[in-house]
Amino acid sequence: MNRFCLIFSTLAFLFSTAAAFSADVKLVVLGDSLSAGYQLGPEEGFPEQLQKALDERGFSVEVVNAGVSGDTTSGGLSRLDWSVGPDADAVILELGANDALRGIQPDLTRQNLDEMTRRLRERGVEVLLAGMLAPRNLGAEYADVFDPIYSDLAKTHDALLYPFFLEGVALNPDLNLSDGMHPNADGVAVIVDNILPKVEELLARAQSS
């Protein structure tokens, strides 16, 4: 009997310990190569560096990398339901760069991002829109239509906004790969440091909802 009690107590302790160390919030990074870790090492991508930064600050969160290199907003919309499962509490939506690079009509980009954000918010998922700016070689007219998409949708859906995902990194050769477009490990570290206050706000929303 004593042996049985000892075994039962040990199992109860192990289960309670596992529960204590399980993440309170599941955060999915739904994006393209900028967040997927294109040509970076296993621990150098955005989700991985963000996970480390949040761990160091004592957050109980699991960061999931749902980035696909080359993905457009249309691709993100088509895989939304299986990329962001029912157990997701929050999403960083980082898509749109490839739309702009391919000159896709901004109206379609807006429509796709609007649909993704709407569906996530209807599920009770908190959303942080990681904005993008149109390449200036596409002309001022294109940029004038593309650039406001993220701020407009954040207001429409009560989502959080980080205006430009590559803030402080774009066009800096020391912070990008040789292609001049994708952040290197140091560039990702800058992005994480810059976006962290908004991510903390996102997690606070997810925990209180």
Rank of each mutant, 00 (worst) to 15 (best):
N65D: 04
V63Q: 06
S78K: 12
A53T: 04
N65K: 01
L80Q: 04
R57I: 01
S69D: 09
S74T: 15
E56C: 04
S74R: 15
E62A: 09
V61W: 10
R57N: 14
L54Y: 00
L54N: 09
G58S: 01
L77W: 11
E56H: 06
L77R: 13
K52T: 09
E62I: 01
R57H: 14
R79S: 10
S78G: 12
V63I: 06
G75H: 10
D55W: 11
S74I: 13
V64F: 00
V68G: 06
S69C: 04
L77P: 02
G58Y: 00
T72W: 03
S78H: 13
E62V: 02
G58L: 06
D71I: 00
D71P: 12
G75Q: 08
L77Q: 04
V64A: 05
S60H: 06
K52E: 11
S69I: 11
T73E: 11
L54H: 08
E56V: 06
G70T: 03
S74G: 15
T73R: 10
S69M: 05
G76R: 09
D81A: 14
S74K: 15
S69N: 14
L54G: 02
R79F: 11
R79P: 12
G67Y: 03
V64G: 01
E62P: 09
R79N: 01
E56K: 02
V63A: 03
F59N: 07
